[in-house]
């Protein structure tokens, strides 16, 4: 009996270890990224690094501001395109689509989520870059091209999380609204969608996180010039691209500067994650000015 108890005890402790493994890993990741990235903050100065306009490792210039702007511009533009489309699509899936069409849409979205980012980048390089070049001029390697590819890549995230949020709105809300004589569209617009807003915001922020963190698909189509873009047809460089493009040959301070770029990226993602969690756990449903 006591050997049984010992086994139970050991199993529980062992399982506990596997459960806290991800936390341990995150701490090690943070430790190593900061260990390698910290020297750039000491040598170059945090403010110079973050707000510096010049990135020229051969001249010892390590300012990542153009890339912060680049990442934010690409992400913003892709959200502008992806959010309306995916929210419409989520409402369509949750409330309107007949069962047969849902059966097509669900695997479609799963497959879109599963396609490797390199394949998206390759498609962008072969199809979208020439298309943008012919339609709008310029080289085709641009903020716009990168944003179109990212739009497609974050659609599945925003659609599936928003759809879950819409579906988790209690049935009574919908029934009550319909019973009061509201049409289906009025019910969606005034009852179901407002009730699902916290979940939809979480979905958008998760999509945003994916867009900020995307690397290779962006590299392949964005042109990667370190400049503040004047128009959406200008080439830009994202923070992620900066690391992937230069890590292969970086040494010394340059190597540290790329880890410093990763620190900036990491902090941006953490901020997004905390905001997403805030909305996720603070699900207060507001309808017509009152709490439900």
């Amino acid at each position: 009996m006591s050997s049984n108890k010992l086994e139970e005890y050991l199993v529980e402790k062992g399982l506990f270890l596997t459960a806290i493994f991800s936390i341990i890993i995150i701490l090690i990741i943070i430790a190593f990224i900061f260990r390698e990235g910290f020297p750039i903050f000491q040598e170059y100065g945090v403010l110079n690094f973050i707000f510096g306009m010049n990135w020229a490792p051969s001249d010892e210039q390590y300012g990542v501001f153009t890339m912060i702007v680049g990442s934010l511009c690409i992400t913003g533009l892709s959200l502008l395109m992806a959010v309306p489309l995916s929210i419409l699509c989520a409402i369509f899936m949750a409330e309107i689509a007949p069962k047969t069409f849902r059966k097509i849409l669900k695997p479609t979205i799963e497959t879109l989520a599963g396609i490797p980012s390199v394949v998206y980048g390759f498609f962008g390089l072969i199809v979208l870059v020439p298309l943008v070049r012919v339609q709008f001029g310029g080289t085709g390697f641009s903020m716009l091209t990168a944003s179109i590819i990212l739009t497609i890549m974050i659609l599945p995230t925003i659609i599936s999380v928003s759809e879950d949020a819409l579906r988790s709105v209690p049935h009574e809300y919908k029934e009550a609204s319909l019973a009061l004589g509201a049409t289906q569209w009025q019910t969606i617009k005034n009852v179901i969608f407002p009730a699902a807003i916290p979940g939809v915001i979480t979905a958008i922020i998760l999509g945003m996180g994916r867009a900020v963190g995307e690397t290779l698909a962006v590299i392949m189509v964005a042109g990667n010039v370190t400049q503040i873009p004047n128009s959406i047809l200008d080439p830009v460089r994202a923070l992620t691209s900066n690391i992937a493009l230069e890590m292969g040959y970086a040494t010394g301070v340059h190597y540290n500067a790329l880890f410093g770029t990763a620190i900036v990226l990491f902090i941006m993602i953490m901020v997004l994650l905390v905001i997403a969690n805030y909305f996720h756990y603070k699900k207060k449903v507001v309808i017509g000015g009152g709490y439900l």
Partner: peptide, 22 residues
């Protein structure tokens, strides 16, 4: 633990790459 898993899921792949290297 849940927050840890979410964080691990949202770290950009290139940051994993740098971590793997170092």
């Amino acid at each position: 633990i849940r927050f840890g898993a979410e964080t691990l899921a949202s770290i950009p792949s290139i940051v994993f790459g740098l971590f793997g290297l170092s």
